[in-house]
Every structure is written in structure tokens, then in C-alpha cells.
Write a protein that binds this DNA or RNA. Structure first.
Lengths: 355, 355
DNA sequence: ATTGCGAATGACAGCGCTAACATATGGCGA
DNA sequence: TCGCCATATGTTAGCGCTGTCATTCGCAAT
């Protein structure tokens, strides 16, 4: 109470001293009705609310004894800062919006993990949204993210619509597009060249003497880029027109895929799950060997480098793409506005036994 | 301008009319410096800001012509509502905090997808945090989530520390613990009985005539519950003490695991990735058959029912756990405070060729 | 003695929005 | 004609913080 009255010296406003009484009572009955506020803590510690705010954000500016008193009050009241109010007052939300097509059973989860590992220790929160490969939902999610005023947006790919692009461009925050290298990026980019990845696989198949190539997977923008690189390179090398089989997103469909690809002797699957599903189909058809790639009647290469691909037999050849690094790099790009804004993380063709 | 002057009738405050001039200029030069606010839109549409607010949230309360005028102004200015301010004013953030141990390569991704599919269409945002199986980080993330004042918290498991539990209990919002059925839940639960899952696998192995059981996987709370059920049931049936091998979280370690389990003829892996890794090790050792479970020198059962388990050969027997349903159910539990607060989603022992 | 300065603390206004309560306006039945 | 209600819109007062200045106080430099 001594500290309190010392502090009261400075008060003039009747209104303020008047409400103080009632609020004190509230504090003393240890009301659990409402979450305690900064000023409740301030009152209890006998300081002004700005001092409590400093204890939370800039403790070095507060004298040790005062700080201790405030911290005690915070503990006693179970004070949890309200970042919503803080964000409004400071125009900083300390959050980033993350938009992925999907998070389940997907390699994008690595990217989300990577960026959140980088961002969370710095006090940023991740607001996650999924587009489910649906342009309309993507636009809605983008608008929803922006209305929470994130410090930056990280997304897999580029907005599917012009509306989405405009929304992001007008947001005046760092935007990072990932998993691609768009020609006209909105802002920053952390990805790799899907076209080149497709070409690299075609090159490999051709070097192996394969003749009849096929591509299986989705028709999303990245899958299509891979297909184009794959096809263009095959044609440029004088091969027959490669086949393309568009599959559902779940890998089960890929099991039956080889029935639709007669005569094909090399398959590039847009992701490892499809590749493994396809191999399951080959196995049933007696077209899979436990030997090395050269012994395979049908060569298979996936993309993503799932740990599982290493473990199965025959082990899966794949394009390894560092999803985690993409996430970390994207996080870095949101934090520093200057410097290199287009980072190609590359990929590696990892050759194992499947092709 | 007519609408504007009509509206000005109602103004008295000099200050307000004074600033109005400058703000109009700002609007007219189409300043992209600052994001337009509600009142900027209101000014342009010649209405009060509350009307704009209504157009956004309760359009039925606004006359069609007025609404059209406001919508036009919003479009022209590229208005994006500021949910941070809205949240502070209405004490509703329309967000839920989600805490998972990890999102990458993990079955929890299904749960996050499930809940976000349910929540996003309702206008809720998902704030995602990872504890990385670290109690201190979990507590920090919990505090960080709560300070954003989410409408609810959904987490995998229960808080590892008393501090964490207290934090959640004091938050006075729905809390959903998932993937377990804790004895003294904080609030709601959507999970399954990990102990019973372990027991079910042991029962199955015993029925199959297996004698020397082992458990491989992590020592997180859920893994340990599975182990206990597995062990207790084996002992109750008079088997030797089962072995337990604690592995790193990545599946690679499981490849070499069988070398440390001499004489073992049945293995329960805490997740499918470990199971598949373990099978890779068996294959190298010549202990894996492409035939049915009975033919396997070492039976293997996983947990999670990854799609991949169905595709590999021999196909993986597993405990299927409906991660997606857990997420959806958890979402439902955050929305309705009444009703059943403890939902057991169960599990299924799916028998295939591995064990 | 005066000035200046750094350290510690506080007052005040306002972030952009919404809840709660007015206030017009125009039928419409009594 | 007079309430009376429904519809459409507006005014006011914050939500719980933080930015931006004060202000106070001791103490060293002049």
C-alpha cells in the first residue's frame, strides 16, 4: 500500500482515482472472470502501465527493483500479455502468413517445419492456411491472411489468379513464393527449377538407353513445369513423344497406372508417393527387380526424397529438393528486405535402384 | 461530393473536419502509403464507419443501395479489413492455436489438415506452433499462443509440465487434447487409447504364436503408453518380458534395429516409418518374405496407416488411427462448449502381409 | 551555482475497429 | 392524428496496448 500511495501522488484525474477503487477490489477478490490487463498488473505493482509494458518488452529500461516488483505482480495475477492489443498499438503483429496447397502427407510439411523453426524463436507466429489446390479457396485464404496483417506471406507457388497477385502486391509486405522460380515474382523467391528437374530426369533416362518415357502425377503448376522440362528434353533428344498420365492426388491411383502405359520403359513420377505406388503396380505385374536400376524393366524416378524411398526395395531414385531449406530460406527472406531476393536452392538427382 | 456534404451536416468537431481535408487529399492522390481504413472507405462512400463495418460483417442490415456504394468504395480503395483491430474491439480473434510436436514427416499433419479444413471455412485462422518434443519449447509456444488470445487451443497430447497445464486452465477457453485419452483432461479430448493399441498388437502376435516380442520407437508419452499396453498384455499372457528399443525420431535408425533384437520374432513399431525402416533391415538380413504374415520370420506391425504401407511389399500391417478424424473432431469440440467432451475415435488393427 | 545529461518513470493520445445505445424515417393500425 | 414498430443509419466510448513526448532526480562538468 505504501508503494501505491506514493504512486497516487501523481494522479489528478478524479475519474481515474475513482475507478481505481473498484478495480482494486476486483484484483483483491482475485477475480478469474477476466484476464488481467497491463494496468491491473501496474496497479498491483504500484507503477504505471507503461512500466509494465517495458518490463515485458524492454526490461533493460526498468530499474531492477521495479522490475522485480512488476514481475511479482505479473506472476501473482497470472498475467498473459495481449498481443492483439499490442499489435494494434505498435502496428506489428509478429506473425507471418503461410499458404500451402496441403499439409497432410506432403513434402510441404518440411517447408512449414523449416520456416517455423526459424521464425518461432524470433517471436513470430505462423498463421497457416491451406488452398487445397483450389484457386478460389486460395484467394479467400490470402484475403483472410492479409486481414490479420502478417509481417510477411510465404506461399508455395504463385497465386493462381490475378486477383490473388494484386492482393499480395498491394499488401506492401514481403511476399515469398517458394517451390518455383517464377519469371515475374511478386517479391522474393526461394525455390528450384521444376522445368530443369524434369529435364534432368529425361536426360538420365536417355543416358540409360530408355526409349519410351512417361510422366505421372498431378497437373498443378509445378507438376506441369516438370512435365514440360521432361517432355521438351525427350523430344529434343529425338525420342518419341513421352506419355503423360494425370493422377489423383493420393497415390493409390498410381498403382494401376502402368496398365495405361503399355510399352513404357521409364517413368518420372511427380512425387515419391506416386513413384512408390507405381512400383507397387509394377511389382504385381512382375516388372520389378530387387537388382540395380539397369535391371529394371521399367525405370522409376520420383521427386521429394522421402525417407521411405531409401528404405524400400528396390530403393527409389528421386529428385531430392530440400523442402526444409526452402522453408528456412523463405523465413530468412521475410526478415531481411534487402539483399538477394531470388534464391535457387537447386535439386539433386539421387540415383538408387529403381531407375 | 453531394453525399459527402450531406454527411458533413452531422459533424461538429473542428478537429475532425480539419483532418478530413487532409485525409481526402490522401484518398484522392490514391495514396498507397498506408492501408485504407474503415473510415477512409466510409468517407469515400459518404457513410459512417459503422455502416462500412456492417457491410463487411452484417450486410443484411444495410440497404442494398448503400451497400453497393460502400462495396464500390472498398473495391476502389482496395480495402482489406483489419482483423487485429476488429479482434481487439470485439474480444473475438476468430483464431485457434494448434500445438503439435512436429509437422514434418508426421501423421500429425493429417490432424492439422483435418481441423483446418473444418475451421477455415468458418472464418477461423489456425495459428500453428511446434514443440519439437521439447517441454520448455512447448511451454514457450503455449504462452505465445495464448498471448494471441485464440478462441481455443488444440494440442497433440497433454502439456508436459505443470506450468503448461496451469497456463491452459487459466486461459478460460476450450482446450482440446488429442491423440490420447488423458485421465484428468484439462477440458476436451479427441483421441484413442494408446495403451489398448499396444495391447491389441500384443494380443495379435500371441494369437499368431509369436514368442519373443519387441517394441521399437520413441519414448514420448504416447509411445510409452503403447509400450506399456504391449508389455503388460504380453506378460499377462505368460510371454517373456518384451524388449524395448528407443530410437531416434527419424526412421533410418530402425534399419539397423534388428541387429539389437536377436531372437525376436515379432516387432511393434511405434509408427509406420519405423516399421518400414525396420523391414528394410530385415530385408537386408534375408528375413523378409513377400508371402503372407504367417510366412514372415519376424512379424512387423506399425502404427499410423500411411498410404505407403499399403503399397510396399510385403504390405504393412498397422494400427490405423484416423488422424484426420481426430483433427475434425477436435475442431468440433472447440466450437461447441457443451455436449460430450471426451471422444474416443478408436483405432483398427489392419492386418496385411508384414505381420 | 548553474548547466547538462543519462536513467527511470509517467501522461497522453490513438491504433482501427465494434458493442451498445441513440436517432431519423416511414408505414400502419387504432 | 397519434403512437408504435421495423428499418436504416449514426454517435459514443472504449478494447489493451505502445509511440512519443514529458518529467523528475541525482550527479558530474563547467
Amino acid at each position: 500500500m505504501l508503494a501505491l500511495s506514493l504512486w497516487m501522488r501523481n494522479l489528478e484525474s478524479c475519474r481515474f482515482t475513482a475507478t481505481m477503487g473498484s478495480e482494486l477490489t476486483e484484483t483483491e477478490t482475485s477475480s478469474d472472470e477476466v484476464a488481467p490487463t497491463l494496468s491491473a498488473v501496474a496497479k498491483r505493482a504500484g507503477v504505471s502501465s507503461i512500466t509494465v509494458s517495458r518490463v515485458v518488452r524492454l526490461p533493460d529500461l526498468v530499474a531492477p527493483e521495479t522490475r522485480a516488483r512488476v514481475e511479482k505482480a505479473m506472476r501473482e495475477l497470472g498475467y498473459v500479455p495481449n498481443l492483439v492489443a499490442g499489435a494494434l498499438a505498435s502496428a506489428k503483429t509478429n506473425s507471418v502468413g503461410v499458404l500451402v496447397p496441403t499439409i497432410a502427407n506432403s513434402i510441404f510439411a518440411d517447408t512449414v517445419q523449416g520456416l517455423s523453426d526459424k521464425l518461432e524463436p524470433l517471436g513470430y507466429s505462423v498463421i497457416l492456411a491451406q488452398s487445397r489446390y483450389d484457386a478460389a479457396r486460395e484467394d479467400r485464404m490470402l484475403a483472410a491472411l492479409l486481414s490479420r496483417r502478417p509481417e510477411a506471406i510465404i506461399m508455395v507457388g504463385s497465386p493462381a489468379t490475378e486477383d490473388g497477385k494484386r492482393l499480395l502486391r498491394h499488401a506492401r509486405i514481403p511476399i515469398v513464393e517458394t517451390w518455383e522460380l517464377p519469371i515475374d515474382p511478386i517479391d522474393a523467391v526461394a525455390g528450384f527449377d521444376n522445368y530443369e528437374a524434369g529435364a534432368a530426369v529425361a536426360r538420365h533416362f536417355i543416358a540409360q538407353g530408355r526409349q519410351h518415357l512417361a510422366f505421372i502425377g498431378g497437373d498443378d503448376p509445378r507438376g506441369t513445369r516438370r512435365w514440360l522440362g521432361f517432355q521438351d528434353h525427350a523430344l529434343a533428344c529425338g525420342l518419341h513423344q513421352p506419355r503423360r498420365l494425370i493422377l489423383e492426388r493420393n497415390a493409390s491411383g498410381s498403382v494401376a497406372a502402368h496398365a495405361n502405359l503399355p510399352g513404357v520403359d521409364a517413368v518420372f513420377a511427380a512425387n515419391d508417393a506416386h513413384a512408390i505406388g507405381f512400383m507397387a503396380g509394377l511389382r504385381k505385374a512382375g516388372l520389378l527387380r530387387d537388382g540395380p536400376a539397369a535391371a529394371q524393366p521399367v525405370a522409376v524416378v520420383g521427386l521429394g526424397d522421402l525417407e521411405m524411398g531409401r528404405l524400400i526395395s528396390p530403393s527409389l531414385s528421386t529428385i531430392s529438393v530440400h523442402g526444409d531449406a526452402i522453408g528456412r530460406t523463405a523465413a530468412t527472406l521475410t526478415l531481411e528486405r534487402g539483399g538477394q531476393r531470388r534464391i535457387d536452392l537447386g535439386f539433386e538427382l539421387v540415383l538408387r535402384d529403381s531407375g
